[in-house]
Structures are given as structure tokens and as C-alpha cells.
Design a binder for these strands. Structure first.
Lengths: 234, 234
DNA sequence: CGACAAGGGTTGTCAGACAACTTCGGGCGT
DNA sequence: ACGCCCGAAGTTGTCTGACAACCCTTGTCG
């Protein structure tokens, strides 16, 4: 289980780089839950960095619940059921299969969010969704503002569920991760695509306006099916 | 924005405690995205700890994507759309409203997982679900094994989706967080409850066996509705 | 007014030390 | 011969101090 010495000097801070490398090794399945990982000293030697850097990298992994440490004993791989967060390895999203799988999870949550929004939205929340839709229509589809308007539409719908966990999840998976996908895979953003997207958004909005949860759910499914196809074609 | 001096000497490591305190402050809305947080020196003074401890705590928050730092400038609150993980503040789960909201999100995902499992499961994956169900029937409902068997049933279903993101999410929200809820709120675990739960599980299993996604979806909804009622009654 | 330099402030990294704990091996006693 | 206790070695947790690399603000000069 010797990884070999690695010297890292990239733009990202060292703890971030090292945590990423370790997380990828962990994800590759080389360790079983409960297995001991290399000691701090060993990691220092391997990455040619100070102990502080190693500890900061380990702190990152601890925050995710990937590892746990025991004073005097060492660092151990945590059990999958002991995770402290749901986190998608962003470098995996360059793989189309992984990206589509993530979209599938997103769709499960956002379809439910749309249905709940149709049921629960307040007049103010609806106004905000309408405003977000208008902003999307106005924005240039290739601009940062266009991207932000697209994301905001989804987040506003999640807000109308009245459930903060939906908001957090949609912000993460529809915002942050979606941004990664756009960067890595390059979602097609042309005027024609925007017209189609705007129509899909409009159908979702109409169902939420009409307080029709099942139509909202189906419209959201249709929209993400459209996203899937646009990403598959690029 | 002075938080006052705090001395921490609990069982958990200091960086973990401090990261928790800071995360709660951030969640309370005292900072807006882009706002500068206290400097490392200020946090050292506030918590009466060394700089290394402060940096490790900050590393935890960075891993979550809650904060980002800029050399020479300071530490800043990240935008919600820049989160790097989905993470539920576990201390919030003592609040019944928050706990039920989290269950709602869990239900959205697990209902979809059940439907996908009904569509996609392989004979081997079905065997594993059957085995998990059998283990649940055999286990004492108040034992650790009983809890583990309950969780395993859900995770096995997620595995049958063939989508690793569903597995990770269900392990997190149905495993780790569900454990927190049981600890904090004390889910009722009596023989009578186990009989009902087992029947609910059996309905899900039957639908997956029969490759009937809509029935699997409905059965999962029914099961989590049952969980909700059992938690509401406790 | 713009550009550059200097000073102060902030994060990133390194090195060394000690505290608090775990683990393992050896010695001693029954 | 076996079990228990103690000491040594190993490991993580915390502290301290130093320097590097950067940012920001202010002042001076062209």
C-alpha cells in the first residue's frame, strides 16, 4: 500500500490537493471500512509536505466523514453509513455515465420539489419564481447572468417547497455541481436551446401557478430530460 | 460581529468543536455571501486556541464549501450555490420540524430509488435485498443488529438502482442521519412496530420482485409515512 | 492622474516541542 | 505456563515561532 512519493506544487492549496488525492484513492476501493490509512508521518514523507498540511488535508476528509482518527492509534476509513455529508467527486462528472447518474438523482429531488412548490407556494414565492423566469428570458444564454438565472429559477422553486433541505440540495446539485458539468462538458447554449429551455421552464411555472402538483412534477421531469439530451448531444 | 471569548475543552477535538460553532453561526444568517469572516488571529483570540487548531477548523468548513479563503485577504462566506457538499446540521434534527423536513427529502429520493430498483434490479441484487429483509426479520428490533438490518434493506434497494449516487445519498440520509434521529428522538422500537415495519418492507420487496416500479414507489412512500408517524408519536 | 514602492495585514507552509493517548513487548509474580 | 503490569515506542492533538507569498492601502514621484 505504498503510493510512492508525490511532489505537488499546483495552483490549489496543498491541503486541498492532498485531500483530493486521498479521497480518490478511498473512492477507488483500495481500503475497506475500518482499514487503517497511512500515518501522518507517512503522508508527510509521501507528499513531501509539512505535518500541518497533512493535518489540514485530513481535516477536510474528516469533515466529509470519509475518515476518523483515534489519538494514539491512527487514521481509519469510516464506514459508508457514517458519512457526514453527501458529496459528489467532481472529477467524476467528466465521465458521461457518472454525470447522467447524478442528473438522475437531481431529477428525483427536483421533480418532487416542483410538486411540493405547486402545493405550498405562497404568492410571494410565486412572484419570485416569476421574476426568476423573467430574468432567464432576458439574459444572454451564454453569459454568467444567463447561467445564474437558470439556476435561480430552480432554487426559487425549491424555496417554494418551504423545506430548507430541498433548497440546500437543489443549490448544491442544481447549482454548484451543474456549474461543474457546464465547465467540463460544455452544455450547448444557443438561442434555439434557450427558446426550448424557456418553454420548459414556462410549463413548470404554469403548473406551479395553477397549483397542479402532478403537472409540475411531469414538467420538471420533461425539463431535465431535455437537459439530459442537450448534454448527451454535446 | 464580536462573538466574545470562548473556552472549549470538551470530548471532541477542538477543530471539530470550533467548526461546528462557526457553521452554526453561518447557518444563523449573520453573514451574507461574500462577507468577510473573522481572521485567523481573531478566531485564535476568541476561542483561546492555537493557529493550527483554527486552521484545521477552517479546513473543515472549506471542505463543505461553506467558506473560501484568499491569501493576503482573509476568509469569506461562500455563496450557497458554491457549496461543495450537501450536509445537514445534525443538531437541527432535534427539532421535529427540521427532522420531518429531512424525512421529506429522504422520501423523494428513496421512492424514486424503489421505482428504479424495480425496473433495473438484477437477480443478484434482488437476492441481496431478500437477504437484508430476512436479516431484519431475524434481528431483535432494539439491537444494533436490528438497526443495521433496517438500514441495510434501504441501502440494498439503492444499490439495485445501479446508480452510485443514490447509494451514497441513501447511505447518508437513511443511514448516518437516520442514526442521529434515532439517538436524539428515540424512534419507537417494539415488537408491534417491527411487525408493521416488516410488513411495509415486504410490500416494497414484493413490488421490486414483481418489477412493478409504481407499486414500489407507492410502497416506499407508505413506509416512510409510517416512519414519520412513528417518530411523531414518540 | 497614474504608476510604483513601502508598510502593514492576512493566509499558506514549515519546523520543533510537548501533551495525551494507544499498542506492544518484556519481566515478574502466582 | 499464564496473566498482569509497566515501560518504551508509536500516533494523534495542540501549541509556538518563523518565513514565504500574497493583498490592500497610502504616499510619493513623474
Amino acid at each position: 500500500m505504498d503510493r510512492g512519493a508525490i511532489v505537488i506544487r499546483g495552483p490549489a492549496p496543498l491541503p486541498e490537493e492532498i485531500a483530493g488525492i486521498l479521497a480518490r484513492e478511498i473512492a477507488s476501493g483500495v481500503y475497506d471500512p475500518g482499514d487503517q490509512l497511512p500515518t501522518e508521518q507517512a503522508l508527510m514523507g509521501r507528499f513531501k509536505v509539512s505535518r500541518a498540511v497533512v493535518r489540514e488535508a485530513i481535516s477536510r476528509l474528516k469533515s466529509d466523514g470519509l475518515v476518523r482518527s483515534a489519538r494514539g492509534s491512527g487514521l481509519f476509513l469510516a464506514h459508508p453509513l457514517d458519512r457526514r455529508s453527501f458529496k459528489v467527486a467532481t472529477d467524476l462528472l467528466a465521465d458521461r455515465t457518472e454525470m447522467l447518474a447524478m442528473l438522475e438523482l437531481r431529477e428525483a429531488v427536483e421533480a418532487e420539489a416542483a410538486a411540493l412548490a405547486a402545493t405550498r407556494r405562497t404568492p410571494l414565492q410565486l412572484e419570485r419564481i416569476v421574476a426568476a423566469h423573467a430574468a432567464f428570458l432576458e439574459a444572454d444564454e451564454r453569459s454568467e447572468a444567463g447561467v445564474a438565472a437558470d439556476v435561480a429559477f430552480h432554487v426559487r422553486i425549491a424555496e417554494a417547497t418551504g423545506n430548507g433541505h430541498f433548497v440546500s440540495f437543489v443549490a448544491y446539485i442544481g447549482g454548484s455541481l451543474a456549474k461543474v458539468i457546464r465547465t467540463v462538458l460544455g452544455e450547448v447554449r444557443t438561442p434555439a436551446v434557450k427558446v426550448v429551455t424557456a418553454a420548459e421552464h414556462a410549463r413548470i411555472l404554469a403548473a406551479i401557478t395553477a397549483r397542479d402538483p402532478e403537472t409540475a412534477r411531469a414538467a420538471l421531469h420533461g425539463h431535465l430530460e431535455g437537459v439530459r439530451q442537450r448534454l448527451a448531444g454535446s
